[in-house]
């Protein structure tokens, strides 16, 4: 039940999943898009802080792991960040993921 604006931005490839577990803006940013991404990342960070503490892991690690899962969960047409840092559009093939990502 994603926010319609967010769902549209994902589908349009304006935003994509970054390796560090946060949402990134692909290409041109707009104040509205930036505000939406910030809001989503604020929420993700609060979630990661809470889960990291519970799992006694660092925020960074938890976020990174979540990134792996999120990228894996992207559907065709959505954007994600490849290990080399570049933005890739998801095809039917599985996404390129960091070596450290768990299967």
């Amino acid at each position: 039940q994603r926010d319609p604006a967010y769902a549209a931005a994902r589908a349009a490839g304006q935003v994509g999943e970054k390796m560090d577990g946060y949402l990134g803006i692909v290409g041109a940013s707009t104040p509205e898009l930036q505000a939406m991404v910030n809001d989503i990342n604020n929420r993700r960070r609060a979630l990661y802080v809470q889960r990291a503490q519970a799992e006694s892991a660092t925020l960074e690690q938890y976020a990174f792991t979540a990134g792996c899962v999120a990228i894996a969960a992207t559907v065709e047409g959505e954007m994600y960040q490849a290990p080399d840092g570049s933005w890739q559009r998801r095809t039917s093939a599985p996404p390129q993921r960091d070596s450290r990502c768990p299967r």
Binding site: R43, L47, R51, E55, Y62, V69
Partner: peptide, 21 residues
């Protein structure tokens, strides 16, 4: 090496907070 340990928890967390993933 904790990434392994967190994978399950992360996917659960993502599922439960689908609105921001």
């Amino acid at each position: 090496e904790v990434i392994y340990r967190l994978a399950d928890d992360a996917s659960n967390a993502i599922e439960q907070n689908a609105d921001i993933f």
